[in-house]
Amino acid sequence: MILEAVMLQVKTGLEVEYEEAFREASSIISSMKGYISHELQRCMEVEGKYLLLVQWENLEDHTIGFRQSNEYQEWKKKLHKFYDPFPTVEHFEKVKLS
C-alpha cells in the first residue's frame, strides 16, 4: 500500500464551493482500480489550506491507472480550477519499525 499526500491551497473565498466539488468528485477517485480510501483535511491555522490523503494498492494504480484515465480528466475539470498554486503530489510508503 502507498499513501498519496497532497497539500492543497484553494483560492480565497472558494472554500465552500471547493468542498462541495470535492464531495462530488470523490465518487470518481473511489471507483478506480487499486483505490483503497481517501480523506480531505481542512487546516485549522491557514484559511484555504487542505491536505488530501489517498491510499492506493500500489504506485502505478495512481500514476498510471488514475492519472492516465478518462476519469482523471473529469477530476481535473471539477477540481483543478480551485488551486493556486498548483499542488505537488508526493507518495509515501510505510516504514517497517520491527
Rank of each mutant, 00 (worst) to 15 (best):
M7H: 12
V54H: 00
K94H: 13
M44K: 10
L51C: 06
G48A: 14
L79D: 06
V10M: 02
E15N: 11
L51Q: 10
E39F: 07
V6T: 12
H91W: 04
V89I: 14
E45L: 13
E20H: 09
V89G: 00
I64L: 10
S27Q: 09
L97V: 15
E74N: 14
H38V: 03
Y18D: 08
V16A: 12
P85W: 10
Y72R: 05
I2M: 03
R42C: 12
K33F: 05
V89W: 03
E71Y: 05
E57Y: 01
T63V: 12
E93P: 01
K11G: 02
E74A: 12
E90N: 13
T12M: 06
H38E: 06
V10C: 00
M7A: 09
R23I: 11
K78F: 06
L53S: 02
I29C: 00
Y50D: 01
Y35E: 03
I29Q: 00
E74W: 07
I28P: 01
M1I: 12
W56T: 03
G48Y: 02
Q9V: 12
P85C: 11
E60K: 15
S69M: 08
G65E: 05
E19H: 03
R23P: 00
V16S: 09
S30F: 05
L3M: 11
G13P: 02
F92Y: 15
P85K: 09
R23L: 11
Q41E: 05
W75I: 03
I2H: 01
G65Y: 08
E45R: 08
V10I: 15
E4K: 07
E74I: 14
H80K: 15
V95Y: 13
K78Y: 07
V10G: 02
A25W: 02
K33G: 06
K78P: 02
N58F: 00
Y72S: 06
K81M: 13
L14V: 06
L8H: 02
R67A: 08
N58H: 15
L52G: 01
E90D: 13
E39A: 14
F86W: 11
K49G: 03
Y18E: 01
V6E: 07
E4N: 08
I29L: 07
W56I: 03
I36H: 10
L14K: 12
E47P: 03
P87K: 07
T12K: 15
E71R: 04
Y83T: 02
E57W: 00
R67K: 15
V95S: 08
Y83K: 02
F82V: 09
K76G: 02
I2V: 10
S31V: 04
N70W: 09
E17Y: 02
Q68Y: 14
N58M: 07
H38R: 07
K77W: 06
V6Y: 02
Y35V: 04
R67G: 01
H38C: 03
K96H: 14
V46Q: 14
T63F: 07
S37C: 06
H80G: 03
N70S: 14
Y35R: 07
H62G: 06
K76F: 12
H62F: 09
F82Q: 08
